[in-house]
């Protein structure tokens, strides 16, 4: 159910949170209407008229103590229901499925128990899921409106959140702790018709640290779990795609495309076009030819050699990308002549 005010209710928390929300909402509306009605009525009724003086005012202990103390009952109740919901939000069941979430400027990485990674958050329906969050740089925050959950990913801490989806479908997640934007990238966006459009979201920052949540049936979810370890199959041939094609998919799914273009234009990082085999010049003045070993090193230890003209802002993908995936990326870069 989606109402004017709130997103669809897709988790077990949603109903309780929304109940509190609408309780406060109608309480507020009633209160607000009463105050406004009294105000408008008084302003009209007691408008200044020639020869009519105001009546002296004073105070009225009973009335005043009444409206000081009686809201307390409502407030304690509100606190109570809010807190009860919050306790549920912080206590994942022991059998919850764990997903490791790593945040960095400006992407999320979801690691599943089998070691596979994804940038789309796939979760099974009707099963408690516990996310363990951390951040590599500044504070980020994972927010899934349809589930009514949110939790900061703080560098140096693990934090957890959990939910149980009640329905299959697709929804959005967001980063809600401000984390900046890539410097300088936007200069290349001048007149770009794709700016801000889905699919080619090439400018990066806090606002682009968003993604999709896919809530799947048990069967769909186990297919997904297998798929993240191997190249996907091509529906046309029924066979696994070539490493080059897999590399091009990883280029997008691991969000290399937020910093690297394939058309020769520099973004936050150098373009990959014509990269393979070219001589690279580094900020420390040394040179090296971009061979497979160099590319591998660039992905696992990006700061070992920082390309001249760029800042060492690329995160390491060690532990995130598996060997075969790195091979696939290198195979893909080789094709970008």
């Amino acid at each position: 159910m989606e109402t004017l005010q709130l997103p669809p209710q897709w988790s077990t928390f949603a109903r309780q949170t929304d109940w509190v929300f609408y309780f406060i909402y109608y309480l507020s509306v009633a209160f607000f209407v009463a105050i406004c009605a009294a105000m408008v009525y008084f302003v009209w009724k007691y408008r200044r008229k020639p020869g009519v003086m105001s009546e002296p005012s004073g105070h009225n202990n009973l009335l005043e103590i009444g409206w000081t103390v009686s809201p307390l009952v409502l407030l304690v109740f509100l606190f109570h229901v809010g807190y009860r919901g919050y306790v549920d939000l912080t206590m994942p069941p022991a059998d919850a499925m764990e997903i490791r979430v790593r945040a960095r400027k400006w992407a999320w990485d979801f690691e599943y128990a089998n070691g596979g990674h994804a940038t789309v958050l796939h979760v099974p329906v009707h099963r408690p899921v516990k996310l363990i969050l951390s951040s590599e740089d500044v504070i980020h925050s994972l927010y899934i409106p349809a589930f009514r959950v949110k939790r900061d990913a703080v560098p140096g801490y693990y934090s957890t959140m959990w939910f149980e989806a009640t329905q299959t479908g697709e929804t959005d997640f967001f980063c809600t702790e401000y984390c900046g934007a890539a410097v300088g990238t936007s200069e290349y966006r001048e007149g770009d018709p794709n700016v801000g459009r889905e699919g080619d979201r090439r400018h990066t920052g806090h606002f682009s640290m968003i993604g999709r949540v896919k809530i799947e049936t048990r069967a769909e979810f186990s297919t997904f779990l297998e798929s993240i370890l191997r190249p996907p199959t091509d529906p046309a041939t029924g066979r696994e795609v070539s490493p080059e094609v897999w590399g091009s998919l990883i280029y997008r799914s691991s969000q290399c495309n937020t910093c690297h273009s394939i058309d020769g234009s520099a973004m936050t990082g150098p373009s990959w076009r014509g990269l393979f085999g070219r001589s690279r010049e580094f900020v420390d003045g040394t040179n090296r030819v971009a061979d497979a070993n160099y590319l591998r090193e660039s992905i696992l230890q990006p700061n070992a050699h920082v390309v001249r003209g760029f800042n060492g802002v690329m995160p390491s993908f060690a532990g995130t990308l598996r060997d075969q995936q790195i091979d696939a990326l290198i195979a893909y870069i080789r094709t970008l002549r």
Partner: peptide, 19 residues
């Protein structure tokens, strides 16, 4: 003031925080 109540109550604040 009234909308502050939504942010003081805990589970609704989790949803509304930083929006």
């Amino acid at each position: 003031g009234l909308t502050g109540l939504f942010l003081g109550a805990l589970n609704t604040d989790i949803h509304l925080h930083d929006t």
